[in-house]
Structure formats: structure tokens, C-alpha cells
């Protein structure tokens, strides 16, 4: 477990996000959390920012690029975007940004729902090991980890970051 004040990180992210949205003059944004950890982070931010539309939930299982290697996930909670994404400013939230493949899949799925005006990426933690040219707009914490180290957000109550070494 990383000894990290998650609450403090979330508060800082909320502040950064508010000022970014103000600077960009992006009013009335909608928020989408990526299943599962991203939804926990998004739920906190969604409340903090008092967003008018309900929180959207994205499950990118059907958009993964490793389906032919690992197959279908045993249980897939369907994505639920309870708003029209056309012409909306979207705040996309995930827990950990690593290779960038999840975000690639999430963007593809969002665009199957419509054409958003913009997408802003918010992550609790970004770690080394990117395989795609994807970066977050707002980052809670950055870490350099080896390829055999995996970081995971556990939760939802309490939220904690856990690092595991693969055997």
C-alpha cells in the first residue's frame, strides 16, 4: 500500500479542474468515469463540482485491444451515459494512466455515442510505461515504476493505492 492521502489528492484535483474549466470557459461539462476505479474517483469529483448532469459510467470491455488474447470478461457492467454527448465538454476520469490503451478504448467508445465538443482527461495517478501518445490534462500524482510493478486503486471505501510486483 502506498502511504498516500487520497482525499488530499482528490481535493487538489477538484481545485485544478475547476480552474482549468474556468480558464477554458467550458461551462456545463459532463463527467464520465471509467469502470471501476475511475468511477470511484469521478463520483468524488462529480459531487465536488456540483455538475448538473448525472455521472456517466463507461465500461470499455468491448473496446479493449486484447480481446483476441484474453477473451470476453466474465461480467461486464454495461456502459451508461445518461446524457447526449454531442457538442458537450466531457471530463473523462480514470484512476491510473499507464499504457494509454484504456483511454484509447474509452475515446473510441465515447465517439460511438456522438461527437463531443472536447474531452479533458483527469487521472488520480499517472505512472511510467506509456505505449500510446496519450497524456492527462490533470494528474493527482506521478510515479516512475518498473514494468513488473503494478499499481491498483482499491475501494470504494476507503480508497487506497496498492503496488504489487508480478512474479
Amino acid at each position: 500500500m502506498i502511504n498516500e492521502d487520497i482525499e488530499g489528492l482528490l481535493e487538489q484535483i477538484a481545485l485544478d479542474l475547476k480552474s482549468l474549466l474556468q480558464a477554458q470557459l467550458r461551462t456545463d461539462p459532463v463527467m464520465i468515469g471509467i469502470h471501476t476505479g475511475g468511477i470511484w474517483v469521478a463520483a468524488y469529483l462529480h459531487k465536488k463540482l456540483h455538475l448538473a448532469d448525472p455521472l456517466g459510467e463507461l465500461n470499455i470491455a468491448f473496446y479493449r485491444d486484447d480481446f483476441s488474447h484474453i477473451g470476453i470478461h466474465p461480467r461486464v457492467t454495461p456502459s451508461n451515459l445518461p446524457f447526449d454527448v454531442d457538442n458537450r465538454h466531457i471530463i473523462l476520469v480514470d484512476d491510473v494512466l499507464y499504457t494509454g490503451r484504456t483511454i484509447r478504448a474509452a475515446l473510441n467508445e465515447i465517439f460511438d455515442y456522438g461527437r463531443p465538443a472536447s474531452v479533458t482527461l483527469v487521472v488520480l495517478l499517472e505512472r511510467s510505461g506509456r505505449e500510446l501518445p496519450i497524456q492527462a490534462n490533470i494528474i493527482g500524482k506521478s510515479m516512475t515504476l518498473n514494468a513488473d510493478e503494478h499499481v491498483k486503486l482499491t475501494g470504494p471505501e476507503p480508497l487506497a493505492l496498492v503496488i504489487k510486483k508480478s512474479e
Binding site: 471501476t36 483476441s68 484474453i70 491498483k152
Partner: peptide, 9 residues
Amino acid sequence: FHDNNAEGT
């Protein structure tokens, strides 16, 4: 081929 739980990346 779902035998390893791929980490969310």
C-alpha cells in the same frame, strides 16, 4: 482465452 486477469491499463 480469458485465463489471466489483465490489469486495467
